[in-house]
Design a protein around this nucleic acid. Sequence first.
DNA 1: TGGAAAATTTGATCTGTGTCAAAGAGACAT
DNA 2: ATGTCTCTTTGACACAGATCAAATTTTCCA
Lengths: 248, 248
Amino acid sequence: MTLQDAKIGFKDCSDCPIRHRAVCARCETNELELLEKIKYYRSYEAGQTVVWSGDQMDFVASVVTGIAALTQTMEDGRTQMVGLLLPSDFVGRPGRNVAPYDVTATTNLMMCCFRKKPFEEMMQATPHIAQRLLEMTLDELDAAREWMLLLGRKTAREKIASLLMIIARREASLNVSADSDVRVFDLPLTREAMANYLGLTLETVSRQISALRKDGVIMLEGKRHVTVPDFQRLQDETGDDSDGGMLF
Amino acid sequence: MTLQDAKIGFKDCSDCPIRHRAVCARCETNELELLEKIKYYRSYEAGQTVVWSGDQMDFVASVVTGIAALTQTMEDGRTQMVGLLLPSDFVGRPGRNVAPYDVTATTNLMMCCFRKKPFEEMMQATPHIAQRLLEMTLDELDAAREWMLLLGRKTAREKIASLLMIIARREASLNVSADSDVRVFDLPLTREAMANYLGLTLETVSRQISALRKDGVIMLEGKRHVTVPDFQRLQDETGDDSDGGMLF
DNA sequence: TGGAAAATTTGATCTGTGTCAAAGAGACAT
DNA sequence: ATGTCTCTTTGACACAGATCAAATTTTCCA
């Protein structure tokens, strides 16, 4: 599966969480009809909370547009982002009733939701859905583990570069055409959200972005629009192997 | 499912990765026979590598005895543990050919392995296995995300206390009987392994353990044998909510 | 049982990131 | 346009944890 495939998958069937991430070929008509019946859309404004940690969560969903964040917060307010959901990403878990972390809309957000009970029933009836969800969950686990390396061992500069790479790769697959070295994208996160993603303070995030700009690794128009003149150069700043960890 | 159940599950059918973690009830005879045919055991000495990141991994397995660690290493040698496998834990992924991280034996290790091809065929044939693996993977994802909070936001002391709690909970379920406040267990990790787990240096790990000892939170006999006189006291040091995050 | 190698502890010092504070820049409503 | 509010940048300083070094304890093999 390539990102290109995923994009097509998303565009062609934007309301099926299983089809999302490029499994169109395996979805059959009667399943789609079933999904039609149990689906509904929900919109959230930037900053709104979708579910609170510990709350009942009676639906599963996939992101249609916008960005959502999964966060965990300690009693004294320290918060760590533990998941970043971009369009086509899936959220919620069959077999669990209670959300283990806060889900909040980072930007304006539209999600396609499915009530959990019927969704689970469909899972029982059509085995390949569980297999597909397993695959998606394993991908998420891989991402979480790469994130753990970032949190535990990378410097602030490497963390910023890594985050920019992640966003560049995701957004680039949606926006840009050429496979040239130059990449252009918008930062969909505030400095504070980036800090919560990276386990830093927002001041450190700001300083490191300034440093990368001064060193010519990135260019900024306004606070959000990023141009990467040399993608390899940014890659080198992440501390990751040059093959980008995309080896499976 | 309680930890007590898991213990029984492990003892009664130590060679079935699906039965492990207390799903005995759903395993049927013909599946067990199939598993018999494709299973084999492998042993590793402490320190040995089971698979290298990027290598072919043509089996899935579950830990019978000992401890294994999943680690990621950067080019310059910085390493971060991203998974800790205790007895009954599952490793490997149907649908993936290449290991995304190193798997090494932390102690002497025995694993019960299943060649991947036939295991996958069995998954196709018996849908509830994929569902069970999905559930297990979601548990792992939750653990990974709690770990991310630890790596990103906790102090060194909180990190140590959290790790001790995790081990105490797991080991206690195997060793101790009473639900008293006192817990006794062996630390199965070197200071270096703990440091790699927590995103610290081994010196900091040593210092913080000394500090917890001096403050009476833990007692040490030798370097490995730990006594926790007041479990709640240790819990308070972790920074976690008092309910222990076990709310699902 | 002795002795070398490995693991751990402890000390001294350094440094990257956090903390606190204030000034600048954008976004938006009136 | 003007002012208010939020987000971002920048500065000065503090401190938790890293680094470098050495002493001590444990392990384990001869």
